[in-house]
């Protein structure tokens, strides 16, 4: 590295700050990933694979036949994979804006002066959904959306005089899992955006308030620049997590009825741990990792603005 002297002292300092974290993440994380990449180039059916000891005491040696890009080619020819992927994107496109808009609304309500005690309670209440164990959220969903004894259906029947079968109808089932996702993660958006709102210098906000009384103009002109980093972070994090979303949906619907709620992670799990075709499952997961990375880059490039 050829940098001037003052910068170099800076970067040597950085080395000691960064080294432990980088070392641990590499040590723990990189082996499985490389292994998975290796597996994705093999015809790797777990029950048919045999192990022949280890290379250097760590790297397991197996006898699966090398198939180069065959796994990657076959997943792009697979309708079910494509369906599951587009279903996941549909889910993403429905759920993310809802979370952002509702989250922003809640953040603005919390930011608005007045009702201080209730606002405090509200902030505590917002922690509950995202702290609830994901598997338990799935169980809650199944209990509350049940057609016969579910509380939500009961409330619905009081208002609309009908008892839809939430988890048995393909569209409603998709809707139901979306509701649970929005319920669990809107509070996260709200808190991130609320934190961002507190970053707006008071003087600027007050000055803007003198100029116009319309809240949306203040939001657009004054607050938005401060919100964009948070929004980017939410987009990256939720996209990555939705591509991995498993517990809630698996417990609520198992991906059914039909394949109405089979998101991509359920699909990959089915290939990797039901059919035990780890070769194809690894290839699929790596494709997903690439998608998540590209999307994140995209968000950073087009949404993020340095303040």
């Amino acid at each position: 590295m050829s940098v001037d002297k003052s910068k170099r002292t800076y970067s040597t300092g950085a080395f000691f700050f960064l080294a432990p974290a980088v070392a641990v993440l590499l040590a723990v994380g990189i082996f499985p990933l490389i292994f998975a990449v290796g597996v994705s180039f093999h015809q790797f059916l777990l029950p048919k694979v045999h192990w022949h000891g280890n290379f250097l005491g760590v790297w397991p040696i197996y006898d699966a036949p090398l198939s180069w890009f065959q796994n990657y080619i076959s997943i792009f020819q697979d309708d079910s994979f494509r369906d599951a992927l587009s279903r996941t994107f549909l889910f993403l496109i429905i759920v993310l804006p809802c979370e952002l808009v509702l989250g922003l609304a809640i953040a603005l309500l919390l930011h608005k002066p007045g009702n201080e005690l209730l606002k405090k309670i509200c902030r505590v209440a917002l922690v509950i959904p995202m702290a609830t164990t994901f598997a338990v959220v799935g169980l809650m969903g199944r209990l509350m959306f049940d057609a016969n004894y579910g509380i939500l259906n009961y409330l619905w029947s009081l208002i609309f005089r009908s008892r839809p079968n939430w988890l048995a109808d393909p569209n409603l089932a998709f809707f139901s899992i979306s509701i649970m996702e929005v319920w669990q993660w809107t509070p996260f958006c709200a808190l991130v955006l609320f934190s961002s709102l507190t970053m707006v210098p008071l003087e600027i906000e007050e000055a803007a308030k003198l100029e116009t009384a319309k809240w949306w103009q203040i939001l657009w002109r004054v607050q938005l620049p401060f919100l964009l980093p948070g929004i980017t972070a939410i987009l990256i994090l939720r996209t990555a997590d939705i591509l991995k979303l498993f517990d809630v949906v698996y417990i609520m619907t198992k991906g059914g009825p039909g394949s109405a709620t089979e998101l991509i992670s359920l699909f990959v799990q089915r290939i990797g741990f039901r059919a035990f075709d780890q070769g194809i499952a690894s290839a699929q997961a790596i494709v997903l990792l690439i998608i998540a990375t590209l999307l994140s880059r995209f968000y950073i490039k087009f949404v993020y603005k340095e303040i």
């Binding site: 499985p32 998975a36 397991p60 990792l289």
Partner: peptide
């Protein structure tokens, strides 16, 4: 950040082996 994007389904097997 990208360490968070790795799906557990696929690294579960190598983690198990190691």
């Amino acid at each position: 950040i990208s360490n968070r994007m790795i799906s557990p389904i696929v690294v579960a097997l190598p983690f198990f082996l190691i």
